[in-house]
Every structure is written in structure tokens, then in C-alpha cells.
């Protein structure tokens, strides 16, 4: 092939990087930090989109099932504990606020602030799960829970089936979100990893936590209020 001015040009920064010898680490760091930040953010937003679609299936099923069993949905919804649901909503909303503050702290290089604020969000997640467990246990005692169905509540099954699928998957997301905040937020911050130049994991962790909150913001009125 002739003079291929078209495809290659030398680039000092890259040329320095290209020399490969056996034993070199795999090229994890194969892009500059600005590109890496953009890539990570785009990747996270796409992932959040897939999460929304995951829940969309259940929202869609809920709409269809509610159309078929309107009065049963209405009655069954009254069996949920509105006060505990409202409490959990408040807890999650507040935890989303502290998660947002944690990002600002990370951007300012305030690692202690990251630990403090993610710590509060983490604790809120824990409270949410405890409250959810109390709700589930109450349902189980009344025979409105998988495996211990009381046939008396047979007609609530469609509503409750979806209720457990939706809140169960959401609770799983709460647990994952807490793990993310600990592993990618709190623990690195303990080693002062974050600065104004590098705070991507904190931002992505907070984004994920906002999604967890956002889904609940739709679940609460749908399940507890509208029914």
C-alpha cells in the first residue's frame, strides 16, 4: 500500500503508551480521563434506562391486571399499610438528598463529607428495608403472602402477586444500591480517593440511588394510594 497519509499519524502521547512488552497490564486505562468520565456516565445512563424498562414490564402488567380486576385491586390496596409506606417514601426521598450532597462533597474533594452523606443514605436504605420487612411480616401473619396464602384472600392474589414482584425487586435494588454506595463511595473515600479531578464512582453511585428512589416514587402512589 502506498503512502497512507489517510490512516495514521503520529501522536506523541499515544506513541509513549503503545510499546507493549510481555507482562504489561491489560489496557484498562486506554483512554484519557475526560473520555473515561464521559463513557462511564453514558454507560450508567444507559444502564438506568434498562432498569426502567425492567420495571416497565411490571407497571404495564399492573395496568392490564387492574383493568381486569378493578374492584379487587381497589379492596386489596386498602390492606397495605399506608403509614409505613408513607414513612418509607419520606426516608428514601431524604436519602436521595444526602446522596446528591455526597456528589457535591466529592467534587470538592471533601472525602469525609462523602462518607457522612453516603453513610446517611446507607442508613436510610437500612431503615427502608426494616420497615419493608415489618410490612411483609404483617402480611404473612394474615395469610396474604406467597407460600402462606389464606384462600380467604384468593381474589387479592393478582394485586398482591404484583405487589410482591414489584416491591421485592425494588428491595433488591435497595440492597444493591447500598452495596454500591459502600463499595464505590464510602470505602474509597476512607482512603481519600476522591478529588475535584476524580469523583466518577460517587456520581454514578448517587445516580443509581436516585433511580432506586425514583422507582419507589412511582410504586408508592400506584400500590398504596391508587390501588
Amino acid at each position: 500500500m502506498g503512502k497512507d497519509k489517510d490512516v495514521m499519524s503520529s501522536n506523541a502521547a499515544v506513541a509513549e503508551h503503545h510499546h507493549v512488552a510481555p507482562g504489561d497490564p491489560p489496557h484498562i486505562h486506554h483512554m484519557d480521563s475526560k473520555t473515561a468520565y464521559g463513557a462511564a456516565k453514558l454507560g450508567m445512563w444507559l444502564f438506568l434506562a434498562t432498569e426502567v424498562l425492567l420495571f416497565a414490564v411490571m407497571f404495564c402488567s399492573f395496568a392490564i391486571m387492574r383493568y381486569y380486576h378493578l374492584s379487587e385491586f381497589h379492596d386489596a390496596s386498602h390492606h397495605l399499610n399506608l403509614k409505613l409506606g408513607a414513612l418509607n417514601t419520606a426516608v428514601l426521598l431524604f436519602s436521595s438528598y444526602t446522596a446528591a450532597v455526597a456528589v457535591t462533597k466529592a467534587q470538592r474533594g471533601d472525602n469525609k463529607g462523602v462518607i457522612r452523606n453516603f453513610g446517611i443514605s446507607f442508613a436510610c436504605g437500612l431503615i427502608f428495608l426494616v420497615v419493608k420487612t415489618i410490612e411483609y411480616t404483617g402480611k404473612a401473619e394474615h395469610g396474604m403472602f406467597p407460600f402462606v396464602w389464606n384462600e380467604h384472600f384468593y381474589e387479592y392474589k393478582n394485586f398482591l402477586g404484583l405487589y410482591y414482584c414489584m416491591t421485592g425487586l425494588h428491595a433488591l435494588h435497595v440492597i444493591i444500591g447500598m452495596a454500591v454506595m459502600y463499595i464505590y463511595g464510602i470505602r474509597p473515600a476512607m482512603h481519600n480517593r476522591y478529588s475535584g479531578r476524580y469523583y466518577t464512582p460517587v456520581e454514578l453511585g448517587a445516580l443509581y440511588w436516585h433511580l432506586v428512589d425514583l422507582i419507589w416514587i412511582y410504586l408508592f402512589p400506584l400500590l398504596y394510594l391508587v390501588g
Partner: peptide, 26 residues
């Protein structure tokens, strides 16, 4: 994601009878 969730709901239907896809459960 849509089929993924749908398949999980099939499991839910089989394991604890969620009443979403099975016509005998509404």
C-alpha cells in the same frame, strides 16, 4: 430488559402463583 422481566414473572408465577400469566388464577 423487557423479556428478562417477563421471564422472571414466569418464574414468580411458577414458584408462588403470582396470578399474572396463568388464566386459572385470573
Amino acid at each position: 430488559p423487557v423479556v428478562g422481566m417477563t421471564l422472571l414473572l414466569v418464574i414468580a408465577e411458577r414458584v408462588f402463583g403470582a396470578g399474572i400469566f396463568d388464566p386459572t388464577k385470573g
